[in-house]
Amino acid sequence: MDATLARLVEEAKLAAPDAKIAERALPLLDLTSLNDDDTDERIVALCDRAVTPAGRVAAVCIHPRFIPVAKRRLENKGVAIATVVNFPGGGESAAEVAGSTRDAIRAGADEIDVVLPWRDFKAGERTVPNDILRACRDACGDGILMKVILETGGLDDADLIERASRDAVAAGADFLKTSTGKLQPAATLEAAAIMLAVIRDSGKPVGFKAAGGIRDTAGAATYLHLAGALMGEGWATPSTFRFGASGLLDALLGDLGQGATGQKPRGGY
């Protein structure tokens, strides 16, 4: 990471949380449950938490099999349904990814979070990852958001994260996302700075999603500060910036004086 980005990361770590940050962060939240043992009942509870006295979250992010449950529960609520493909390992073929994406969209998904084949990418392979992202992009068409999960904790190298970010943007990503939440470290400010700088330099309308390990308003404040420093104050809106999290919602509501909203999903988020 160059000196400018390193300085911005250090400054972001000093960002102070307050109720205004909590109010700003809540509508940026992709409320997430991606546990292997999720049930219909747990997803219903998740959806019921998505609309709060302080406002609604941007989306719920769930496994594809629960899309119909979420769609029924969130009908006319103004909350998008996001799901994952090639998740979490990134080992599916381009044809499988395209098929899974089309199936999810037919079931009612509004947003697709697709895992870059980061192990292949780390090993030097470029054609297979590119083919998978382009297959997903084609399946999404123009109306469905495609968020590309880089799994930055697995890439664990600034140059690799930068290259993967550039390739994902070139393949048509609508968002760059840090992590699956299944591998540690998950989201880090250092990875976020590299990804945001690539988005800025691309000149394209690409958003950013920090996912995994962000559990309180203080953590949210650091990422919002960093995004403002790199992209401009006010850039972070639901169309350009998301937090992938579960427990973060209760923390934000607590700081807004609203208390908890019920059962918290389990898992890496």
Rank of each mutant, 00 (worst) to 15 (best):
P205C: 02
G219N: 05
T152W: 04
G254P: 04
R242Q: 08
P17Y: 08
T180C: 12
L74V: 03
L160E: 02
A139N: 11
A220Y: 02
A173N: 02
G108C: 10
D201V: 09
A229L: 00
L8Q: 14
D201Y: 11
S100H: 15
C136F: 00
L28A: 06
L34K: 11
P238L: 06
I81T: 08
V198H: 06
N76F: 04
H63D: 13
D167E: 15
E233Q: 14
R24I: 01
L253E: 12
P265R: 09
K264R: 13
R266F: 07
R73L: 03
A19I: 01
A107C: 03
D110K: 05
L248Y: 05
D18S: 12
D159P: 00
G257H: 03
S165I: 09
D36L: 12
A104Y: 08
K177E: 08
L31Q: 04
A95M: 09
G143D: 15
A164Q: 03
G181M: 11
A191K: 06
A54G: 01
E233W: 00
K71V: 09
A3E: 15
V69F: 11
E233V: 11
I144E: 04
L26E: 12
A221R: 07
R134C: 06
L248M: 11
E190G: 02
G90V: 05
G259P: 08
D167K: 00
K77N: 02
G55N: 06
I81G: 05
T52E: 01
G89W: 04
L28H: 07
I199R: 05
D103K: 14
I161R: 05
T4E: 13
G124M: 05
R24G: 09
M195I: 08
R200F: 10
D142A: 15
S179T: 13
I67F: 10
V60Q: 04
L252S: 09
V128R: 13
G228A: 10
R166Y: 00
P64V: 12
L189K: 08
V115K: 06
C140Y: 03
R102D: 08
I214L: 14
G172N: 12
C140R: 06
K204Y: 07
G124K: 06
A98N: 09
R65D: 14
V97I: 15
R242T: 01
G207P: 12
V44H: 07
L150E: 02
D103M: 08
A12E: 04
T240Q: 08
N86F: 10
R119N: 05
G254A: 09
V115R: 02
G244C: 10
R163E: 15
R56D: 01
A260T: 14
G254N: 15
D216M: 09
